[in-house]
C-alpha cells in the first residue's frame, strides 16, 4: 500500500533580501494543513540561503541558489520549482497570486501534472481532502472545489489568511538542493529594473480618499469627481482601468499592482470591487461605496453603500459642501 504524501510546500516570495508578507500567510496555512495530515510545512527559497533565517515557522526550508535565481526570472523559477517538486513530492503547493504565482501556478499545473485552484481565498482540510474556496468573475461568484488527488496547486489571494502563525517558532531545518542543469541556460534575462515613479500626491498618507472607477465612463466626466475631492480637501485615487486609460497618473492607482491605502474613509464611485482592487483598500476604516449594480462585490466589504447613480450623487455631495 502506498501512503499519500502529506507535506505542504510554499514558494517564498521575496523582494531583494526581504521575504514578503504573503509568504507568512501561506506558511501559516501550510502548517495548519500539513500538521492536520501528519506532514511537514516546507518553504522553497530561491536565492541566498541565509534568508532562511526569516522563515523560522517552516518545518524545513528547501534552498536552491544559482546566479539565475538572483532576482525573479520566470523561466529559472519554473525550472527550480519543478525540480523541488520532484525531489520533495508534496501533497499541495501554495503560491501567492502575485506576478510570480500567476507565472508559476498554471505552468506547473501542466508540467507537474496537478490540478490548480486559482484565486483561492479559503482553504481547509476536510478529513483527507483539501477544500478550496475560489473567487471567479471578478469576485461576484465563489466556487468551492475539492482537491482530492495526491497532488494539487493553489494560487492564493493575498490578505486571505492570518500570517501570525507563519512568523514565529523555529528554527527551521535547512535543506540545500543543488540547482538543476537547466538554470545554466535560461531562455530569458533581466535587462533593467524599474522602481515606481514618485507622485505629486501621496495617496497612502491621506485620511480621506475619493476614488473613482470605470463607471465614470470618460476622462471628461472625471471633472465632476475632482470637484468633490476638492471640496473635501481629499486627493483623487482610482482603480486600474482609470490609470491604464491615462485619465489619472499611475501613482493614484489603488490595488494589487498599485498602492495599498488605509485611509480613515474611502469613498468609491463606479468601482466594482474586483479582488485586485480590494487588495489595496480593504484595510480602510470606513468604506463608502456608490455603484448602480446592487451585486457589485465591493458592497460585500464596504461598510456603507448606495446604488445611486454617481452622476446624481457626486454633484449632490459637492453642493452640500459649498461654503
Amino acid at each position: 500500500m502506498t501512503s499519500m504524501a502529506s507535506d505542504v510546500l510554499v514558494l517564498a516570495e521575496r523582494a531583494g533580501d526581504q521575504i514578503q508578507d504573503v509568504t507568512y500567510e501561506l506558511l501559516a496555512k501550510a502548517s495548519e494543513l500539513a500538521h492536520a495530515w501528519g506532514g511537514k510545512a516546507e518553504v522553497a527559497l530561491f536565492g541566498p540561503p541565509e534568508l532562511a533565517a526569516q522563515l523560522p515557522a517552516a518545518d524545513s526550508v528547501i534552498c536552491v541558489d544559482h546566479p539565475a535565481l538572483a532576482g525573479y526570472l520566470p523561466d529559472a523559477y519554473q525550472q527550480a520549482l519543478l525540480h523541488v517538486l520532484r525531489e520533495r513530492s508534496p501533497r499541495l503547493l501554495l503560491l501567492p497570486n502575485t506576478t510570480m504565482g500567476l507565472d508559476q501556478g498554471a505552468a506547473l499545473s501542466v508540467l507537474w501534472d496537478a490540478p490548480l485552484a486559482a484565486s483561492v481565498t479559503g482553504l481547509t482540510a476536510a478529513g483527507g481532502v483539501a477544500v478550496a474556496t475560489c473567487q471567479v468573475l471578478g469576485g461576484k461568484v465563489l466556487a468551492e472545489v475539492e482537491l482530492a488527488g495526491e497532488r494539487a496547486i493553489c494560487t492564493v489571494v493575498s490578505g486571505s489568511f492570518d500570517p501570525s502563525a507563519g512568523q514565529a517558532g523555529g528554527p527551521a531545518e535547512v535543506v540545500t538542493i543543488p540547482p538543476p542543469a537547466e538554470l545554466d541556460a535560461p531562455r530569458m534575462s533581466v535587462r533593467q529594473m524599474f522602481e515606481p515613479e514618485a507622485g505629486d500626491v501621496d495617496i497612502t498618507s491621506a485620511d480621506l480618499l475619493v476614488s473613482v472607477g470605470r463607471g465614470i465612463g470618460s476622462q471628461d466626466n472625471l471633472e465632476l469627481v475632482a470637484e468633490l475631492a476638492d471640496a473635501l480637501g481629499a486627493p483623487l485615487s482610482a482603480s486600474r482601468p482609470v490609470t491604464d486609460s491615462g485619465w489619472l497618473p499611475k501613482t493614484r492607482q489603488v490595488g494589487k499592482s498599485g498602492l495599498k491605502v488605509k485611509p480613515r474613509a474611502y469613498l468609491a464611485f463606479g468601482i466594482s470591487g474586483a479582488p485586485e482592487h480590494l487588495e489595496g483598500m480593504r484595510g480602510a476604516e470606513l468604506i463608502i461605496a456608490c455603484n448602480t449594480d446592487p451585486h457589485a462585490p465591493l458592497f460585500d466589504i464596504a461598510h456603507v453603500g448606495t446604488t445611486e447613480d454617481l452622476f446624481d450623487l457626486v454633484p449632490a455631495l459637492t453642493e452640500r459642501l459649498a461654503p
Partner: peptide, 19 residues
Amino acid sequence: ALTVRRMYTPEQTGHAQML
C-alpha cells in the same frame, strides 16, 4: 479537472449597510 462542490454569490457573508 477540479471537482466543483458548489458555486454561490458571496453576499451572504457580509454586506454594506445600504443607504
